[in-house]
Design a protein around this nucleic acid. Sequence first.
DNA 1: AGCGGTGCG
DNA 2: GTCGCGCACCGCT
Length: 876
Amino acid sequence: DDDVPRKCQERFLSRMALNDNKAGMEGLDRDKINKIIMESSKGSKFYENELKREQQVNRRIEKMMLQKAQITEQQLKKAQVQVEKTASVLEMSRDLSRVIVHVDMDAFYAAVEMRDCPELKDKPMAVGSMSMLSTSNYHARKYGVRAAMPGFIAKKLCPNLVIVSTNFDKYRAVSDEIREIFADYDPHFQPMSLDEAYLDFTDHLEQRQSWPESSRTHRYRSRSIECLVNKLLNLSPVLFEDSPNSSLGLLGSEGAAGDAFEVFGTSVEEAVREMRFRIEQKTRLTASAGIAPNTMLAKVCSDKNKPNGQYRLPSTREAVMDFIENLPVRKVCGIGKVSEKMLNALSISTCSHLGQQMALLSLLFSETSWHHFMEVSLGLGSTFIPRHEERKSMSTERTFRELSKAEEQFSLCRELCEDLAEDMKKEDLKAKTVTLKLKNVNFEVKTRALTLPYAVATVDEIFAVAKDLLKTEIENESPQPLRLRLMGVRVSAFVSLDDKKPLQKSIIGFLQPGKTESSGSSKDMHQNLEKENHSLQASPLVCPPLMQKYQRKEEVPWRNKQSQAGKEPQQSFFQRAHAKRLQLQAANGSKPEEGLEEDTSVITSGGICAEKAVKSSTKANDNKNAASDVSENELVSPVEAHASTSGCGGTSSETLTCPVCFRRVETTDLNIFNSHIDHCLNDPTRKPNQSTASDSESDLDLENDHQESEVVHRRRGECEAEGEMSKNSEELSRDSPHEGQQSLKNSSVQKGPLIKGDSKDVTSQQPQSCNSKGPVLICPVCQLTQETDDLTVFNHHVDLCLNQQVLHELGGQTSSSRNPPAVKNINIRGKCVYYMKLFSTFSLNTNPILCTFSLCCMTALETRCEHNVGILSPFK
DNA sequence: AGCGGTGCG
DNA sequence: GTCGCGCACCGCT
């Protein structure tokens, strides 16, 4: 009989039923609410579709259970070993040194509306429309009214519900206000939406310790008298009067209402409370916050004492594990309805279950998934705030009443394209992929995409593609018409502006590895670090700049010596890589990258034109009819390529050497230089006359848009010669067909600039500057020539070089930083992940985590740093 | 590349 | 009567 409520629940679609895992939903009549939801939904097309999708998920689960049934004891045991290895590696990377805060405004849109319209204060209300609600106030939540619920159902749950339509401009204005406050605590805070952000309080707290009381004192807002009066009259617009946390309660004790103020302490809690206080004083809205050693936990914590509260999870492993113990998996960011249901099917509902079942999970889920599960079960998460990534797509879509006439569909499609083109123009984007999205009246969604060899930006260009896609769909369905309820157009695969195309980015990166790296790759690196932190997915790492000492001493590829003088000192790669600190350095320090970023962003239009041309010239290059009739050292006029960029100055006598034609270009302006390279790339006759049969390996690979591909080819040869390493790492990692490619890419990008000076063929060319007789390779780390053509040998050298660099870097940290023993840094997650990445690029075809520590750290660090022997020994 | 699906706010 | 929009990412093919 205990099962009766359970059975009742199962009669409800899990997709449809009330989601009560969020705040404000405790102690309400679930069953009654679900009944109403079901009754208002049943029979609708939407419901039918949800039913279908639910069944799909059920089939997925059945399949999974079938798979589970076939797992043998032995397989499970083996998996267990693997899982434990991964767990100890992850454990090693645990970093409890950061203080991450997640701030979330309480019922944001609803709160803003209530603030501006006090009559709403005591009523259940929601923001949105009859067809969809954005959020509801806490009063309405008692009835089961929630965000993402259609208004008409909400009305059935709560007939008195007031629905206010959205005023985004207002929310944005408020958002700006709170972000100003955020910036005081972490100038690099990461907004997740208008009302939510992650902050890294670590540095603020450090400074705060020495702040005088006056800096920690904050006044009640000037209107506090008015507030007091309101409060006395019970008219206060404050959202949650009964909340014991309401800072207005303190007003009384302060006495004089006119100039009331409050002093905050130096602890984390006090700092966060202060921030929330300031938000409330400034906006008359309340916020909740979570304090934890990483983002994943902070997010969960911010929910814990909502509304208008905060929760701190102490930075100890014990506290974290206790916290995780009974945490429902659904609370974790990234685990949604479907994942929850799948996990539930395996009797996993809390994070501790997750940990107990890891072996099983590793056999049933993809590597990315189970790695994520494992991180969750260990209470791990990002310990730094990810930088905002560049956008990857842009779209617009619209829902409407049934639309069946082809004519109307086409004109709607055009409208969407117009909107989209307008949005693209604002960000100066050009995209190569256009995707059409259709949803029919049965809620079935279809997407159709086409990738062009060139980029589009105008209405007509986009519409030309979208129209074709639409036409095909209409024809496929004919003679029946498409009965649509939604249409959308999306563009992606941008080839724009600050990103430009990888081709150009790489070239700039190669030219000035230390500085220009930030125009793209520094950002990328943060992203990659974050990605790896989050999903453990191997991701490509861009070419790292060389170490400072080498950069000063040695020539940078393709850059002539005379142009090296008088440049500001460069940060080391390791400093840059260290997530948060790096960000701060970039902002407070000499900002070597900013000027360049501006420079390069001007290229766009020329760049895009060039890209088309590169494509079309591919064949010509393949034919190798590239005999150049120009003498090798001829000076080329920079304006030859694109005169339009001439506004960018460049009067110095410095020169750069073009990697395509190997002639010097009399400019330091990268725009101009880039244009020259574009021009060269477009002109097959520009290829240097010393081209040899090995061109296909050493020259820019024009068939591929990505500059990396050149190096990929080169590396591929190396990999095959690298049997020893690959074999070892394969033993440690799970078989994964994609892994190899991924790692290959990593390695290739990392080892980008093997070419030095005028030498262009890495494997056989002998640089003019070098007197040696045999073939020579140039180490990208130490920049010294290696007299060998054996790539395995060369690779070994590079690995050694790199390891030394790591050790050197660790040593440097000890002497100058407040963290005492250098090697302890390995335990700091940011650093640790970084090393993993670094090493993984040299271990092909492997799980990055395992291979890095097992292969590289063991060889590199174990012998040199006793501290780590103990930690690493499990992998022997 | 293209597509469907999951998840988030 | 009425169940959204914009974005990122994943896995499969």
